[in-house]
Design a protein around this nucleic acid. Structure first.
Lengths: 338, 338
DNA sequence: TGCATATATGGCCACGAGGTCATTACAGGC
DNA sequence: GCCTGTAATGACCTCGTGGCCATATATGCA
């Protein structure tokens, strides 16, 4: 663990001179510079980021908080963010909140203790610890929320245009001829904005579709079992839907499984449109139509936004919305005439 | 950004006393302790890990280097390691090497600069930067290799018992009645130990099976396209294999796709046994038989081993081997009589 | 009362890099 | 030969915490 002092001693100069070989080499006499560089080489000197961070007030580290790295979309975001952050010479400190608010707070404390320079949150689904985040921001940490925000979030965010995406999904199904379209996913309520649900409802009204309670496959949380139960109910209706629109990857999987177990055929008996272009969706029979999130773009925007705030030193409240992409593979077709 | 001095000032004591409220409260008079604790509370004081790390010589951070977080097995390991590391009060610094040796070296420098206390590597597939790792170890960093090691690695490692797992896979197929078994995966050579290949070969010899060149679906690297080409060749043989054993998740996918495109039926026409219990393997038709790696156990052992070395201060060279688990779902059956 | 001991608290330095200010040496101009 | 300016180098302080040693007051015991 060579320090700059070791380098200085070996080169026969003072520590200050040795440091200048790194920071402002033009100030040094050529042969001095040479000697110091050789010493750095010989000792494999690597500046201590920790000491530098202490002096400078912050590390060259960006914190990333996600729900669970096992979710493919989180993994994708993590990879993309990690690559870009490292390209800018920063490191990535990773934490899962495991969808628990208390754990999230611990992780935020950890980020705070580690003096991260910026923070990207894909926290979602849980009551956010905004009070803590605001303190972090006041301390100079650049904060960006990604993919999900709570109503009234004071931070910058980068998200899918969920409302539009859901609207487009319904449009796609309507144009194929569907009139009885069900959804499976979370619904909006007074204190909870679920944008995909809002887009779905708006589209149904726009196209004059039936919006009966029966066709609403509302789930409380995005776990597969609950979604599965809800789908079974939908399929056993007297007049079942001709198409199901699943609001995220987990729901899409649950819907697929439920339809299989019911021995129904996609898309002959029922059409399925999902969210999230997970790899399995192209492997199953038939491969599924999905609305894909532009995860790489989202990651890029988030990283840019964090660094912009870091540079300017001021928190921003910029809101970026990106469009989803419809991927057609054949799981949606015109409904059979009843 | 309150420091301990701010706390001390507010509580009307010296900095030393304030620190003792945290580290050795039994030394303080009860009412002094109380006052300091209130000040900590009021100022939301959080110790600066950076300063602490500078003083102590190392951070409370573990580095994790993987190939690509998008690989489900990496994601699984990352989650499991992350949880356990955090439980022990440490944080996780994450880096992908993207299967590039030069990038891996940069990442190692980053870990070094950030003074990580321990390092878990699932570096695999690329020439390892052992010289650099040895320097890190000499500096006091606890190092553990995970899931893959190069011949003669001087570090501790935690791995699947690959040889035995491959042997068991062949045994399973032999007991179903298969005699013409092909593999798809990397092969061993003079300077390259591929344990799964070695186990496969050993088992074939043990059961007196044909070991012709034709049935060896050797690939140079684990990418889907190459594996796909290799499988097509296997299927077009005059006497094609009755079972294919794929040596990792990517190969398993390639084999599945190639068989589908050839309009062959699993398991009626051909049996398929894969490695890695990826989620899609249970979703396809038919769901696949796979050898599952005990990823959570591997993560636990790796974390334990890192912390043991951190505690003892001495590098160990302990080698842990864990068994694979055969998951039967129906993609392997007795071969049809020709 | 005097001295040893325990209790409670504070002063100060080190960790390693970053930056400011100070010092030395040597050149050019008169 | 003296003064000034600049090039080259070094001394020293800072960041916040951790740990060692010192100091001050109270307690116990002969």
């Amino acid at each position: 663990m060579a320090t700059i002092h070791d380098v200085a001693t070996l080169a026969g100069v003072s520590a200050t001179t040795a440091k200048r070989a790194i920071r402002s080499p033009q100030l040094l006499a050529p042969q001095t510079l040479e000697r110091v560089q050789q010493a750095i080489e010989a000792l494999h000197y690597e500046p201590d980021q920790i000491a530098s961070a202490l002096r400078g007030g912050h590390t060259k580290t960006i914190g990333l908080m996600i729900g669970d790295i096992l979710e493919p979309s989180f993994a994708m975001l993590t990879r993309s963010i990690g690559q870009q952050v490292r390209q800018k010479g920063y490191s990535l400190l990773l934490a899962d909140n495991e969808y628990k608010s208390a754990l999230e707070r611990d992780m935020l404390k950890m980020f705070y203790g580690n003096r991260v320079r910026g923070l990207i949150l894909r926290s979602a689904y849980i009551p956010s610890n905004y009070d803590y985040l605001l303190r972090l921001q006041a301390r100079g940490t650049a904060i960006v929320e990604l993919d999900y925000v709570q109503r009234g979030s004071p931070f910058s965010h980068v998200m899918l245009d969920n409302t539009q995406a859901a609207f487009d999904g319904v449009t796609y199904l309507v144009e194929l001829g569907h009139k009885r379209i069900a959804y499976v996913g979370k619904a909006s309520s007074a204190d909870n904005t679920e944008e995909r649900h809002e887009g779905f409802v708006a589209a149904c009204k726009h196209y004059g579709l039936e919006l009966s309670k029966q066709l609403m496959g509302t789930v409380e949380s995005y776990n597969e079992d609950e979604a599965y139960t809800v789908v079974r109910r939908l399929l056993e209706l007297h007049k079942p839907p001709t198409a199901i629109f699943a609001f995220n990857g987990t729901c899409t999987l649950a819907v697929y499984r439920a339809i299989q177990h019911q021995n129904l055929h996609i898309p002959k008996d029922i059409s399925l449109l999902g969210f999230d272009n997970y790899s399995w969706t192209s492997l199953v029979t038939p491969p599924l139509d999905v609305l894909e999130q532009p995860l790489n773009d989202m990651a890029s925007h988030a990283v840019e936004l964090v660094f912009e705030q870091m540079k300017s030193g001021k928190p921003l409240a910029r809101h970026v919305r990106l469009p989803a992409k419809l991927i057609q593979r054949g799981s949606c077709q015109a409904p059979k005439v009843a």
